[in-house]
């Protein structure tokens, strides 16, 4: 009986794998960010789509060129760089000139990711480094190009003169009142913020849409609640010092940061206790920056600061062994 001569591969076990790849995970994360984008288009109009595509294009170009220079296969399709572009766009004001996100994305990926060696080796959250670079490069556009939300008036929203509610938090109750524009008549402030009918950055205005996406990631077991709850808990601890605690908890990028940025695998600790300390640290720092810093938004820098702690936190907080130590025999 003739037998086929197979080409046999050798390796140590296991010889099977679960099948969910890094790319699968990144594309699922991107999918989970879709509700927030959809919502942004509905309340701020088509330009936000342009902002998002511009940021993704900048990130992808930097990644692609880095791979070319390094002489490796392009990693653009692994979804990670698209995720970075999405998250960067979500932190930008919806009226920002369309070319700026491209620049921010490209610089962010270059300085925070490729110079460290690409996926898996970066220390800082790439999207947030992009945002930080943009804050330094385009300070005026990053803080004044807000739009008045208008549900369903795609393309017909107005530029907002003045500060966002979060910016005005430090100015006292009247300033907050003045900043809350575009709310549907008779709707309470808390509900409007929960739904996302308020001025703010592209992808972070609707707590509901962010939580919906996060729910998908939780269901898919891509993220756990440990870090997000720790971030929100840490922020809550700082809420008594805020002029408007409800608005403080529901505004800005707190929820987007807690569920989608603080949970970034590479830049957060992977042990349970490490994650709790990391998350609470982010929440506390966010509150400190918002309440006493000279800066309305705190989550971006809070995450970047805690990113620096990640290697130490993993070193200090180790997973417990299942079995007790053995007695020397």
């Amino acid at each position: 009986m003739s037998m086929p001569e197979p080409h046999l591969y050798l390796s140590t076990g296991p010889h099977i794998r679960r099948g969910r790849t890094t790319a699968d995970i990144m594309w699922l994360v991107n999918l989970s960010l879709a509700p927030a984008l959809l919502w942004a288009v509905l309340v701020f109009g088509w330009p936000v789509l342009g902002i998002t595509l511009s940021a993704i294009a900048g990130c992808a170009l930097a990644e692609h060129l880095a791979c070319k220079v390094r002489g490796t296969d392009s990693t653009v399709y692994d979804g990670s760089v698209v995720c970075t572009g999405l998250l960067l766009a979500y932190t930008l004001p919806p009226g920002i000139p369309l070319w700026m996100p491209f620049v921010g994305g490209a610089l962010g990926v270059f300085f925070a990711k490729t110079v460290f060696g690409g996926l898996g080796y970066n220390i800082f959250n790439v999207a947030l480094v992009g945002r930080a670079i943009m804050m330094a490069t385009f300070p005026v556009e990053m803080t004044t190009t807000w739009l008045t939300p208008g549900f369903g008036q795609i393309g017909g929203v107005d530029a907002l003169s003045g500060a966002t509610p979060l910016v005005s938090l430090t100015g006292g109750p009247e300033a907050v009142e003045a900043a809350i524009v575009g709310l549907p008549e008779g709707m309470s402030e808390g509900l409007a913020f929960l739904l996302g009918l308020r001025p703010g950055s592209v992808g972070e205005v609707s707590v509901l849409m962010i939580v919906a996406g996060a729910g998908f990631l939780l269901w898919q077991k891509i993220i756990k609640l440990t870090i997000p709850l720790s971030v929100l808990g840490g922020a809550l601890l700082m809420s008594p010092w805020s002029p408007d605690p409800v608005l403080y908890m529901l505004s800005g990028g707190l929820w987007l940061g807690a569920f989608f940025m603080a949970t970034d695998y590479v830049t957060s600790p992977s042990t349970l206790k490490g994650q709790i300390v990391f998350g609470v640290g982010i929440g506390l720092l966010t509150g400190m920056i918002r309440n006493w810093g000279g800066y309305p938004e705190g989550i971006c820098y809070a995450i970047l600061l805690m990113n620096t702690m990640t290697p130490a936190l993993e070193e200090w907080f180790r997973p417990p062994r299942t079995a007790p130590k053995g007695t020397p025999s």
């Binding site: 591969y9 099977i16 890094t22 898996g120 695998y265 830049t267 957060s268 992977s270 042990t271 997973p319």
Partner: peptide, 17 residues
């Protein structure tokens, strides 16, 4: 049914833990 894929850097997901 087997796995012959190449491997990549650790992304720190913590799944192995």
């Amino acid at each position: 049914e087997t796995n012959l894929d190449r491997y990549q850097p650790c992304i720190g997901c913590g799944e192995c833990l």
